[in-house]
Write a protein that binds this DNA or RNA. Structure first.
Lengths: 345, 345
DNA sequence: GTGAAAGCGCTAACAC
DNA sequence: GTGTTAGCGCTTTCAC
């Protein structure tokens, strides 16, 4: 006799009633429902997910495919996604496709088939991958990129970069460098770097500042990369007076480079990032803040709505706000000759 | 007609044969197996996990319960665990129990019941929680704490701390502070802080150095906390000449505090951490390195062995090595009067 | 409001 | 090496 039968027998009801009572479905009197739940608790009975998945076709599980777990952005995002779905009674199945190999295996095999009710994609799928995802026949949501047929959330990367660079321009800077990633060389992994680059160009153009490729450096979205990128910028014939870093981690690496060169921030060089990393408050970094908890919960909300009512069209894209947080790493451009004052902040 | 039946019918074989062919079980000729797999691929057929879980009782899924996702240690560990299990054909179900509420709900409900083949626990379960875990009837593995009936992996925290502090002692330091967590005040969340504290005491005692409670500060295992802890240490009447931080992040926060006070490292104060965080290389932090990838794969290995052969006793605890990585933040104690030389490293 | 019974899609005896 | 068949533990018609 199985657990569900035990419960049913002990209460003198049918398994159908127990099933209804446990799953919260109507058709059971409150009294019976209460007794069933109480006994289930005592008997340590929990309906088997496999069995109900088999019977209903719903797994109550959400898949998340991510290129990284241990990076700031992804860790925070996964964390936010998890809490929203957990609150709604869904479990999270995590797929980390960190290597090219793992990635192509994932999209070829699609191990999530019949295994999840919806999928969250934290990487930028190419056309083939997107096509594969569409064959799943479940809601798919992407973060940071909009594609036909997928739910998506994200910030306006172009606008965010524009505001960041505009902030520097407002302070009188005209020689403004950018630390980002890719720049046409690396295969397209994310859209953020591209859009942020566009925003940087837009802001410069609006202020009649010429674009200078020497001022664009690859920081690989890591602190280390940011430091090295800044080293290269400082080695150039004409140094920038301000730097727009596409992420706070790169900005912090750049800060470190500047200080090691005996220059001061913002005295000699101003710097602004994007993210509002925990560390940014500590080091006084000016940044464009984004909220990953908000992003995670918007995403979850959109998916859950779609799951509850597959017919109703959910808005395909949700845009989240960013805001300029001015701290101590940005200041007016120097108008006098550049010395090398040490200023620790 | 279901997918498996379609495949069977199209090939003129039985569903049992298809099942055997797909799952890699013996009892099918290579020729038939190949044809089945080929057709399955073409027809986009993949056995339903729910159905096979129901039939076999095995879910091919591993649960991971963690208090954090977005923190360095946990992110890296989860990442390592994921890759080992993925390689073995298992999926990862992630449970983030960040709040007291979520935590007690998790242990009361035990949503992993019948849902995973094994469970990895990244928090320190109290006695009740451990008891609850034992009722699951599946292999349970913990990281960093050894408990009756659980598989476990971890470093020797006591020894690691001893070596770290001994390194400082060898450099002539006798006034050695510790930045850690808890110190008897906070409810016991992890064993590491306690064990590392013991190691600190051991090393001091062995060198005939008196323990001084003023030199122990809570850094909450964050950079920010480390900075604040160091601020307090520097405000004391008699400053330490060296600091043992129980994590690199706290050490880096402490470094920052020291530099902001205009003191130099290691000129005025030496500092050592534990972890070998990516950032540590950048800032030249001396540390006790541990390998989270190794930890994750040992853990996965132990669980997989247990899963393959439940009878055979796997060694209940695996201890992983740590090693002293000497960089630039530790040096001989000053023998002359303390000035305040600026030295940026 | 409740029960009986037919599946959901697979696996594992057991036959051959 | 392959087929037949009885479940695995639920959900969900359809009766009542």
């Amino acid at each position: 006799m199985t657990k569900i039968q035990e419960v049913a027998a002990a209460l003198g009801v049918s398994v159908a009633t127990v099933s209804r009572a446990m799953s919260g479905k109507p058709g059971v009197s409150d009294a019976v429902r209460a007794r069933v739940r109480l006994l289930a608790d005592e008997l340590n009975y929990l309906p088997s997910r496999s069995a109900s998945a088999l019977a209903t076709g719903r797994t109550l599980t959400i898949g998340v495919v991510t290129p990284y777990i241990a990076r700031w952005y992804f860790g925070h995002l996964i964390s936010a996604i998890e809490s929203s779905f957990t609150a709604a009674g869904y479990d999270l199945l995590l797929y980390n496709v960190s290597s090219e190999n793992a990635r192509s295996r994932f999209f070829q095999t699609l191990p999530v088939r019949k295994r999840v009710d919806a999928l969250v994609v934290l990487l930028l799928p190419d056309d083939n991958e997107a096509a594969a995802l569409r064959t799943l026949g479940i809601p798919v949501a992407t973060v940071g990129s909009q594609q036909e047929g997928f739910i998506s959330v994200g910030i306006d990367d172009v606008r965010t970069a524009e505001v960041a660079v505009q902030h520097l321009i407002n302070l009188g800077h005209r020689r403004i460098a950018m630390i980002g990633e890719g720049f046409g060389v690396v295969p397209l992994q994310f859209v953020a770097p591209v859009d942020r680059q566009i925003g940087y160009y837009n802001a410069l153009r609006a202020a009649d500042i010429d674009v200078n490729p020497e001022l664009e450096q690859n920081g690989e979205f890591t602190m280390q990369g940011g430091e090295e990128a800044m080293n290269r910028l400082l080695a150039a014939r004409e140094r920038p007076t301000a730097v727009f870093a596409q992420s706070d981690e790169m900005a912090i690496g750049a800060l470190r480079s500047i200080r090691r060169h005996g220059l001061s921030v913002p005295g000699d060089i101003s710097i602004i990032g994007i993210d509002d990393h925990e560390m940014s408050g500590m080091v006084g970094l000016t940044t464009m803040a984004q909220s990953l908890p908000a992003m995670g919960s918007s995403l979850a909300q959109a998916i859950l709505e779609h799951l509850e009512n597959p017919a109703a069209e959910v808005s395909p894209h949700t845009e989240l706000p960013t805001r300029l947080v001015v701290r101590e790493t940005t200041g007016s451009v120097r108008t006098f000759a550049t010395g090398s004052l040490q200023e620790d902040s």
